[in-house]
């Protein structure tokens, strides 16, 4: 199996070499679930800076985990010049670095966040949503009236690289998800130039059942088997 439709399987260290200084990086996950922990640890180890992190939240950094959990580590390690997220309240460093002017922060309502990614991945010029109308989220955005109702125009969001987390993969890169780990991962798989999927298992000798596949393999460029880190092995 060497043709192009068969996706390369790499170590996390090798895979994250594709993340360069200045890259925009989408990271899947909501709270603990669906986070590519092994890829993140490799990216922390690699130390690449000046990243634009695009993720729903920045997980945790607190007294119990001063070093951060998951992609929260990228913030603690000051590898991000900008974070685009919907909620950062559980990572004290995200708040601090933003308050001190050391990191840019763009907060987006969660539903608009995923729609912006969908627009990026599905060739749409934007989406009209009623969410945020009449709030400060409206500021600086185009508001368009359709049939008497006001909507905010939310613009597409894309990234250089998406680090996503799946459950099972086959060698064609097709993915399934598990539990609440699906969240933003399928949308992010559509919206980045390079998609690296960390998975629990790679089925070597047969394709996944086509009916069960959530993310088609054409969207996935590199497969990485999850490691045995604390959270990788618990999710």
């Amino acid at each position: 199996m060497t043709h192009k439709l068969i996706k390369p399987v790499m170590s996390a260290e090798e895979a994250v070499k594709n993340v360069k200084s200045g890259s925009s990086v989408m990271v899947g996950g909501f709270n603990y679930a669906g986070v590519p922990y092994t890829l993140i640890d490799a990216l922390v180890e690699q130390g690449t800076k000046d990243l634009h992190l695009i993720s729903n939240d920045t997980l945790y950094a607190n007294d119990k985990h001063p070093e951060g959990v998951g992609h929260g580590k990228l913030v603690v390690n000051q590898q991000c010049r900008k974070v685009t997220a919907s909620h950062i309240g559980l990572n004290r460093e995200t708040q601090r670095l933003f308050n001190e002017g050391k990191m840019e922060l763009e907060l987006v309502p969660q539903g608009s966040f995923v729609e912006r990614i969908r627009c990026g991945g599905f060739g749409l010029g934007g989406v009209l949503t009623p969410t945020g109308v009449g709030t400060i989220h409206e500021e600086g955005k185009q508001v368009i009236e359709v049939e008497g109702k006001r909507y905010i125009l939310e613009l597409p969001l894309k990234a250089d690289v998406a680090l996503i987390r799946g459950f099972k993969a086959d060698r064609w890169g097709n993915l399934t998800y598990f539990g609440t780990g699906r969240n933003f991962n399928p949308a992010m798989a559509t919206a980045a130039d390079l998609v690296i999927a960390e998975v629990d298992a790679i089925i070597e000798d047969s394709p996944l059942n086509a009916e069960d596949i959530i993310t088609p393999g054409l969207l996935v460029d590199i497969l990485v088997l999850k490691g045995d880190g604390y959270y990788a092995s618990r999710t």
């Binding site: 939240d57 909620h87 933003f98 907060l107 309502p109 969660q110 539903g111 009623p130 989220h137």
Partner: peptide, 15 residues
Amino acid sequence: KMVPGMGGAMDLVTG
């Protein structure tokens, strides 16, 4: 003081 982000709240109150 406190800017944790709106999470899903703005969507929820709208929908």
